[in-house]
Structures are given as structure tokens and as C-alpha cells.
Design a protein around this nucleic acid. Structure first.
Lengths: 251, 251
DNA sequence: GCAAAAGTGTTGACGATACACCCATGG
DNA sequence: CCATGGGTGTATCGTCAACACTTTTGC
């Protein structure tokens, strides 16, 4: 069940597909670690993933785009559907009913709901996190600090991360998680954060440069302590080619 | 929309989740090529994938297992959910309404339906293809001979094949598509069929044997023309280990 | 000047590919 | 006996992993 699937009056039941929702795992990269965008529910202080219902007149993909836009104020987001959660009892309905009684009416929890899971990759710096009417804040949370979430959202998050790792070699991850200009150590640390393991910087640079997916800019990053690193940008055409030719492996 | 989602009376609307269905792409391997199990609809002679609706009391996975069992008479099928098809207009409703008017009533086609796609891998020899009440036959069709299908089932099939190829390195494909005892050329041709490219038999054998996922049996396949090939079986424990350790690549 | 991070090349091992001939069997 | 597919080894190339020191900068 997702935040926005909650119907407070009959008007919303008409607009949406019954018993179907979607949930979004929004990944960002900052400060050498992977972050997820979470919503903190009013009064109870517990967290969940952003989600929503699907209107009769929009595709499930479009619904996900709408939700993403509402929470991040971003257009043109990299979005991938990764799994549909279809268990009969996805979480403890009674517990949720109690926890959220002050916000939503009981009848919501009568029917089981199937939820389509999406993950999104966004440029951390461009996002304006925006809560909805059930939540008091919308914040980036470090992957290592994610608390117990409402509904079955820990499970969804885990599965999203697995999907991200599996597709890492074939999707333009860097292009979507990194800012337009970035340094080689930035990119290295992004891979390290996603794969949760150390990578040799010399081998990494060699490999990346050989593929030709990045272009070194004639500038360095200033204002940082220590030696100034070079800035790079992606060669989008070449990046796409490499991914199609068979991927970019860091096993 | 799927075969079994069709409601012919009000009693069925009660049992299922409205506007949600599932479709199954059942792969088998025989005669050096990949096959799909298709249903031929009564009178019109056109084909579709097997599918079904989801009961309120069963998970989507269980619904897929039920459908699979009905069409193949097999228990314990290897099954993977690969994508959920959520477009508003997945196919030409008017055309379908006309084509199937003699079998199902009009009101079925009013609502858009979202469908969860599964692919299954089965041992060709163990399957007893069984049509349902809307279809006159259930048959294996060579992947290269798949005709234009009803609904958006060509698209679903294409996407299933892509998913199969992507997951080929991490899923126990051979264990599920091949019979219990098989020859090295069988396994080679299975990979060739899935990837649609030639593989060198010497290098293939070397690689497979080195991983230890198969055990050579003290017997050969008799009754075939030419030199009798050795029979192998999978070492299931070792196979699982290898897949978890990082996969079995044939790029 | 010192602490901290950036930048860079070489070597060895392993895995992947290319390649051709003999053998066994059924017809 | 012959046609067909099965079975096998070696040499080469390229790729990946391991590894340490110098440079630059802010403080």
C-alpha cells in the first residue's frame, strides 16, 4: 500500500485502479554514499517509500513519473520498473490500521493491494524533496541508516537495490546519479557505494578511460582540500554504445 | 488481457482482482531449438499466451503457478516474474472484441487491464499441453515460427526473451530446460538457441567442466546415429554455488 | 611543512578465443 | 564404407588484478 493510494472519499475510488498501487525507491548519491528518499509520516514519526495509485487514464509508468515529479520536483527522471509485489498479506494490516488511524479511515485496509515497484536514479543536488499531505517531511536517508519502514517497504528497498546491482552493467547509472561534471574519484566512489566493495583507483580509471564513455574537461575542481581533481563529463552517445555492445562490468 | 481473466458471469468478478491479470511465457527446449507453449483459440485459429486472473485469496505468484499447472500438468515449475505491462491501451480492444465475440461477452473489454508477466522454464518432455475452455489446442511453437498473437502477446514474448537472456548467467536455466540426463551437445545447443549465436564446442566443454556444475555419468546415449555422446547430470549444489558466486557467463 | 587525497604504469596470471583432426556409430 | 556428429588439446592474445610512489593543495 502506498501513500497516495489512500482514498479519503468516493471521488478517488473512481479515478484509480482498485487494489493496485506503485512504490518508488529513489536513489541519490552524495558524500560518497547511496541515499534513498523517504517520507516521514505525520505525528508517528515513522518512514515509508513514496508511492501512489494509478489513474484509469494513465499508464503505470506515467503514474510513477507523476509520483516522482511530486516528490522531487524533477522532470525527465531515469526510472525502471523492477518488480511487482503480489503477496496476499504484504504486511500487518492491523498494525498499520492502528498506526495511521488518525490520518486515514479504516475502510482503506479492507482489500489486499498489489504494488508495482520502481527505482529511480536522480542527481542528488537537483532534487527538492517535497512531502505530501500525510507526511511531515521528505528526506534523503543514507542506505546504511534506513530504519524499519512502514508496510513492506524494507523488502521493496532490498529488492530495488538488488535490481540496481544486477542492471548496473547495462544501465547508464553514472549519467543519472552523478552531476553533469564530476571527478574520477566521485565516479569510483559511486560504484563502490552501489557494489559495497573497494575498487582499485588505477584499474578503475584505466577501464573507464579505455571505453571512452567520459571526456576530461580542461578544468579542475577548485575549492577542495588537497590536490584538485580533474573534472569529467559523459560522452552520452559513446556511453549508450558501450552499454549496448555488452555492458560495463565491475564484478 | 488474459484468457482466464475473462468473466462470463458476475460470480467470477467477485473472486478475482479487477483490472489485473497475468500472462505466462512457457519456454521449452527440444530438437535444438527454443519453443513456447501457445494456445489456439476456438474457431478463429489465432494464438495467444496462456494467462489468468488473480484470486483475492492467492498471491500473484500462486496464481501463476496455478495457470502453469493447468496448462502443463506440471508441479514445481521454475517461474520468474519479469515485467508488469501497464499501458492504458495495450492492444486494439475493438478488434479483439470482434474476433472473440462468439466466445466472450462485450462488457469484458470495458476496463483497461494491467498484466503481470512471468516466464517459466520447463522440461519439454514432461509437459502435457492442455487447452482451456476458450481454446481448441495448446501446442509448442518454435520461437522462430511464432505467428502474430492476440492482445499484446508478441510484445510480452519479446520482453520475456530479453529477460531470459539477461538472467541467463544467474539462473539455473539448464537445470530447468534440460531433462535429468543430457549430453554436452544438448547443453551447448540450448545456449546457442537462447543466445541465438554459435559457440565453439571445445571451449564450451572446457568452461562447463571447469565449473564442476555437471557430472559425467558412466553411460552414453544409445540409439542415436553416429558416435554415442556421454550423458551428464547437474550437480545441483555446485550449480547453485557457481551462480551465486557471480554467474556463468557466455557473452 | 605537513596531512590528505589525486594521479599515474608495469607486470604476471588467468581466462577467452581460435583452430583441426580422429573416432564411433547407424544406416 | 561412408556420412555425420562427437570428442578432444594447444598456442596466442587480451583482460584483469595486484601493487607504491610522486604531486598538489589547503590548512
Amino acid at each position: 500500500m502506498s501513500t497516495e493510494n489512500i482514498k479519503t472519499g468516493p471521488e478517488q475510488s473512481i479515478g484509480g485502479i482498485p487494489q493496485l498501487s506503485l512504490d518508488c525507491v529513489i536513489f541519490g548519491f552524495h558524500d560518497s554514499s547511496l541515499k534513498v528518499l523517504l517520507l516521514k509520516w505525520k505525528d508517528i514519526g515513522e518512514w515509508s517509500l513514496p508511492g501512489g495509485y494509478i489513474k484509469q487514464t494513465e499508464s503505470v509508468d506515467d503514474a510513477a513519473i507523476r509520483v516522482l515529479k511530486e516528490r522531487t520536483a524533477l522532470d525527465k527522471i531515469f526510472l525502471r520498473q523492477f518488480y511487482t509485489f503480489g503477496k496476499v498479506k504484504r504486511y500487518d494490516n492491523e498494525l498499520i490500521k492502528k498506526k495511521l488511524a488518525h490520518l486515514v479511515s479504516d475502510h482503506i485496509w479492507l482489500d489486499r493491494v498489489v504494488s508495482v515497484g520502481y527505482y529511480a536514479l536522480v542527481d542528488y543536488e537537483k532534487v527538492f524533496p517535497t512531502p505530501d499531505r500525510f507526511t511531515e517531511s521528505c528526506d534523503w536517508v543514507d542506505l546504511d541508516d534506513v530504519p524499519e519502514l512502514l508496510f513492506d517497504h524494507n523488502e521493496i528497498l532490498t529488492k530495488a537495490l538488488k535490481a540496481l546491482r544486477l542492471e548496473l552493467s547495462f544501465q547508464p547509472i553514472g549519467l543519472n546519479l552523478l552531476p553533469d561534471k564530476f571527478t574520477m574519484p566521485d565516479m569510483l566512489r559511486m560504484y563502490e557505494a552501489i557494489l559495497d566493495k573497494k575498487i582499485d583507483p588505477r584499474n578503475f580509471q584505466k577501464k573507464i578511460l579505455k571505453t571512452g564513455i567520459v571526456i576530461r574537461l580542461p578544468e579542475v575542481k577548485k575549492g577542495v582540500a588537497h590536490k584538485s581533481p580533474y573534472l569529467y563529463k559523459f560522452d552520452k552517445k559513446r556511453y549508450t554504445e558501450v552499454l549496448e555492445e555488452g555492458g560495463l562490468f565491475f564484478v
